[in-house]
C-alpha cells in the first residue's frame, strides 16, 4: 500500500545540464503583466481607501456644525473651487477617452492615431496638473489648516502624485511609440500605462464626488 513517489531514476538524465530553462507553460490566458497591474491597482485603491478613511473620520467622527468647517483663521467656512474642479474632471475624463483611442488605433495599426492619442492624453494630463497647482496656490488654506485642510490636500495630493506617475509612464510610452515600438499584436508596454491612466481617472471621479460635491 505504498504510494509511488518517483525517484531519481524516473527522470534519469536530469540535472547536469540546465543552462536553458524549459519553455514556461501558462495556465491562464491572462497575460501576467496585465493581471499584475490589476492587482497592483487593487492595492492602490486600498491606499486611497486609507486616505478616504482619514477623511471620513475627520468629517463624521468629529462633531462639526458645518461641512466644510469654519476656518478659525478667517472665521468663515472653508471654500472649495467646485466649478474649477468640475472643469478638471472633464479634462481628465476626456484624457481617458484619448488614451483609449490611442490603444485602439494601435490595434488597427493606425500609428498616427496612436501618437496623436498619446500626445493629447499627456497634454490633457499636464493641464490637469497645472490647474491643480494653480488651485492649490489660490485656495487660501494650507494642509496645516484644520483636519479639513489636511484631508483635502491629502486626497488631492495623493491623486496628484498618481497623475504625475501616470504622466511619466505615458510620456515613456509616447517616446517609444515615436521610435516605432509596439505593434498591433504586441502592446503590453502601452496597455499598462493606459490601464493605469484609466485608474487615475476613476479615482479622480471618486475624489471629486466625495470631497467637492457631497
Amino acid at each position: 500500500m505504498t504510494s509511488v513517489a518517483p525517484t531519481e531514476s524516473d527522470h534519469g538524465h536530469a540535472h547536469g545540464h540546465g543552462d536553458h530553462p524549459p519553455e514556461q507553460y501558462y495556465s491562464s490566458k491572462v497575460e501576467p503583466p496585465i493581471l499584475g497591474i490589476y492587482l497592483f491597482l487593487a492595492s492602490e485603491a486600498m491606499l486611497f481607501g486609507s486616505f478616504f478613511a482619514a477623511y471620513f473620520f475627520a468629517r463624521v467622527a468629529v462633531p462639526h456644525e458645518f461641512w466644510p468647517p469654519i476656518n478659525p483663521k478667517t472665521g468663515h467656512q472653508f471654500e472649495l473651487p467646485v466649478f474649477l474642479a468640475l472643469i478638471n474632471t472633464i479634462i481628465l475624463v476626456t484624457s481617458s477617452v484619448t488614451v483609449h483611442w490611442a490603444v485602439t488605433s494601435l490595434k488597427r495599426n493606425y500609428r498616427a492615431g496612436l501618437i496623436a492619442g498619446l500626445t493629447l492624453t499627456s497634454l490633457l494630463g499636464l493641464t490637469f496638473l497645472l490647474i491643480q497647482i494653480r488651485e492649490y496656490m489660490r485656495i487660501g488654506f494650507s494642509p496645516r489648516d484644520e483636519a479639513f485642510g489636511s484631508t483635502f490636500y491629502g486626497l488631492t495630493g495623493l491623486h496628484g502624485a498618481h497623475v504625475f506617475m501616470g504622466l511619466t509612464f505615458l510620456s515613456f510610452a509616447l517616446w517609444r511609440s515615436m521610435k516605432g515600438h509596439y505593434s498591433p499584436k504586441h502592446h503590453v508596454g502601452l496597455e499598462l500605462p493606459a490601464i493605469y491612466w484609466h485608474f487615475v481617472d476613476v479615482m479622480w471621479i471618486v475624489v471629486y464626488v466625495m470631497v467637492y460635491v457631497v
Partner: peptide, 27 residues
C-alpha cells in the same frame, strides 16, 4: 496599503504639521 496609509498620515502630521490625528486641529 492601510498601514502604508496610516504611517504616511502620521508622517505628514509630524513633518508637515498637518492635523490628521491632531485634536487641536479637528483630527
Amino acid at each position: 496599503p492601510f498601514i502604508a496609509g496610516s504611517q504616511f498620515l502620521l508622517m505628514f502630521d509630524r513633518v508637515l504639521h498637518t492635523n490628521f490625528f491632531e485634536v487641536a486641529g479637528g483630527g
